[in-house]
Design a protein around this nucleic acid. Structure first.
Length: 427
DNA sequence: CTTTGCGCACAAC
DNA sequence: GTTGTGCGCAAAG
């Protein structure tokens, strides 16, 4: 309950700061929330992190410092050459694009800028690569884990297949997946105990880069990318979204993953000077590393196309059948990368019953419906409820606009349900 | 002191 | 050209 309150406060604060032309950074946000509502900065910080995880708020590195954005307002334009909206934005945007391309951008304010998909992909790739640079540096220094040859779901892909148009989908399913994004020094990782600390620390992390004089200030000047501490929050990872991870740890929805642990490795980045990689990398210093590794390991290098452990042999046929549906749909809609999506969906379906309200919200948020995701959350729709939803429920029961509602139902709810039931039929 | 307002320069489009 | 952004300053409280 308080959550929604905080969401409102925080979003409000961000908007307010923005309108005042002040950078919506952690410090200001906390201060303003405290002043206005008397909330403890720590708490605000924790809540903010949650919002980041849900992608209601985007954590971005802009001009060398961390900023927070109201996801509902931002996405639409966030794309610059260097801005990497890795996690969230990309995810959201991507899916958003899909829709946008077809129909209107009914998302309204929150609308993700449906403008260009291709570009986005390119951008992402570029970004990813940049990120990669950063990463690689980091890796060299410390973030070892498993980043050998092709591990990086994101990065590697970016490099190797850059030209290929299939990369990004991860985003769709994996909002958090920004696996590319490392949890960073300490961002969201431990919302539970360390949330506060995390906040603080990451804040520092963010600032640090800025303080460091980049070799090419210009270049660095404007970059915006989503930090997304959320990423690390494996803690409450969305079951469905962990693609790669899923493989490794199929069902385990939560905390189990080791977000924090990762952090430690990551840390080193601070020290690392991003410059080599490229201009933009500096600011990002923050992080991405840990995650990827996990992902990579799981998928063994091949980013997305894995099938669920479960479906491997057994329901293969069925899967195909389904695929024909979903894939077809996706193809039409997205123009390409359906396999992955299909797969993802399957994975997700697997855990659908275990999805929590937050998982559902994150899913839709990642799918490009941040505002509508809130409606799901407000209505406390968890995985089970989702399975029970009917078209009318989605169209009218959530009090969301018809346009997005239709898309959500047709492209997500229905697909998830279908997938889920097919799977279980089989099993 | 803190908070607010906003001119201005930047970058992206 | 437009737009979003946020630094840095001055004004207001």
């Amino acid at each position: 309950m308080s959550e929604s309150k905080y969401r409102e406060w925080i979003l409000d604060t961000i908007d307010s700061l923005r309108s005042r032309k002040a950078r919506p950074d952690l410090e200001r946000i906390c201060r303003m929330v405290r002043r206005r509502h008397g909330s403890e900065p720590d708490r605000t910080c924790a809540e903010l992190e949650k919002l980041i995880q849900e992608q209601t708020v985007l954590k971005v590195n802009y001009k060398g410092s961390i900023s927070y954005r109201n996801a509902a307002k931002v996405q639409r334009r966030s794309r610059k050459k260097d801005d990497v909206t890795l996690a969230t934005a990309s995810a959201a945007r991507r899916s958003g694009l899909e829709e946008a391309s077809h129909s209107d951008l009914s998302n309204g304010d929150s609308a993700l800028g449906p403008a260009d998909q291709d570009q986005d992909e390119e951008d992402l790739e570029a970004d990813a690569s940049m990120a990669m640079d950063t990463d690689s540096n980091a890796d060299e220094e410390g973030a070892d884990e498993s980043r050998d040859g092709q591990d990086g779901a994101f990065p590697s892909r970016t490099y190797e297949d850059a030209p290929v148009p299939c990369p990004p989908e991860q985003a769709v399913s994996a909002p958090c997946s920004p696996s590319g994004t490392r949890p960073g020094p300490s961002p969201g990782c431990g919302p539970v105990p360390g949330s506060v600390l995390d906040c603080v620390s990451f804040q520092k992390a963010g600032e640090r880069p800025s303080s460091l004089p980049p070799s090419s200030p210009r270049a660095l000047a404007h970059n915006d990318w989503v930090y997304d501490s959320a990423v690390c929050s494996a803690e409450r990872q969305h079951p469905g979204m962990q693609k790669d991870k899923a493989v490794t740890k199929p069902v385990v929805p939560s905390a189990t993953s080791s977000p924090c642990a990762l952090k430690s490795n990551v840390k080193k980045e601070d020290g690392v000077k991003p410059e080599d990689g490229g201009p933009s990398s500096d600011q990002l210093v923050p992080d991405y590393a840990a995650r990827p590794d996990e992902a990579r390991n799981g998928s063994d290098g091949r980013p997305q196309t894995l099938s669920l452990p479960s479906d491997n042999g057994t329901s293969f046929k069925k899967k195909l059948d389904m695929s024909s549906f979903t894939a077809a749909e996706d193809t039409l809609l997205n123009g390409g990368k359906n396999d992955d999506i299909t797969v993802k969906k399957e994975k997700m379906s697997q855990n659908l019953l275990q999805w929590t309200v937050a998982d559902v919200a994150s899913y839709f948020s990642a799918a490009g419906f941040p505002e509508q995701a809130m409606a799901f959350r407000t209505q406390e729709i968890d995985g089970k409820s989702l399975l029970l939803m009917q078209r009318s429920d989605v169209l009218t029961g959530l009090s969301i606009r018809l346009g997005p509602a239709l898309k959500i139902y047709e492209r997500h709810v229905k697909v998830l349900q279908r997938t889920h039931f097919l799977e279980y039929e089989d099993l």
